[in-house]
Amino acid sequence: MKHFFIPTFIFLLISCGNNAQQKTVTKPEIANADPVEVEAEDGFEKAYFASGCFWCVEAIYESVEGVKEVVSGYAGGHTKNPTYEKSNTGKTGHAEAVEVIYNPNVVSFETLVEVYYGSQDPTQVNGQGPDIGSQYRSLIFFQNEQQKQTIEKVKKDVAKNYKKPLAAEILPFQKFWKAEAYHQNYEKNNLNNPYIQKVSIPRLNRFKDKFPDILKKEAH
């Protein structure tokens, strides 16, 4: 489980979770499946991303203009009804992920993909920052061929800036499982948590410095 009340002096020993698994566990039947397309609701579309602790990723996307809401959850695995405790073992195949509900007339899917690659270390394999293990691996999901081509286009442009290969797996979307209630809006609701102070907020601030033109005016 995540460490909620740990003194700052041992922060380097903590992460978003502690039962890390070292190997990527995406099964071939997941990677080779036909993508599932999620219908728009009231003009809002949904996109799905994973890049480390969902506390961090949720806060980043919620600061983007045109994003209505971000939900923390699990995706990319082979088990049904994953829980935090089970996914944190790495054995479910799921990664901590987010569902981004957005207005495509305000922010494009391509911009969301640019945010994805630009808000993490895209070369880090099987984790992000201090969070190591398959449950923190980077996954980016497409729902149709057009989205897949958009992801590949952005990936190609981003890769020019790095000597190492980009680590994110590009997968056909299958299903998103919503995480437990206490994970939702975690960064906003737990500003004094050592992990939030030392990892989430600095990561959010780096993103905001990099993408000032797409931020909500009220972005915290």
Rank of each mutant, 00 (worst) to 15 (best):
L112D: 01
V113L: 08
V113F: 04
E114Q: 15
E114I: 00
V115R: 01
Y116D: 06
Y116T: 08
G118I: 01
S119H: 05
P122Y: 01
V125I: 15
V125T: 07
N126P: 12
Q128P: 14
S134P: 12
S138H: 04
F142T: 00
E145Q: 15
E145D: 15
K148G: 02
Q149S: 11
T150P: 08
I151Y: 03
I151C: 10
E152G: 02
V154Q: 12
V154A: 06
D157I: 02
A159D: 06
A159S: 15
A167G: 00
A167C: 03
A168N: 01
E169M: 09
I170P: 05
I170M: 05
P172H: 05
Q174F: 11
K175G: 02
W177S: 07
W177C: 07
A179V: 08
A179S: 11
Y182K: 02
Y186D: 08
E187F: 14
E187S: 14
N192Y: 07
P194M: 06
Y195V: 01
Q197P: 05
K198I: 01
K198D: 00
I201T: 11
P202W: 00
R203L: 10
N205E: 15
F207I: 06
K208P: 05
K208Q: 15
D209T: 07
K210S: 15
D213G: 07
K217Y: 00
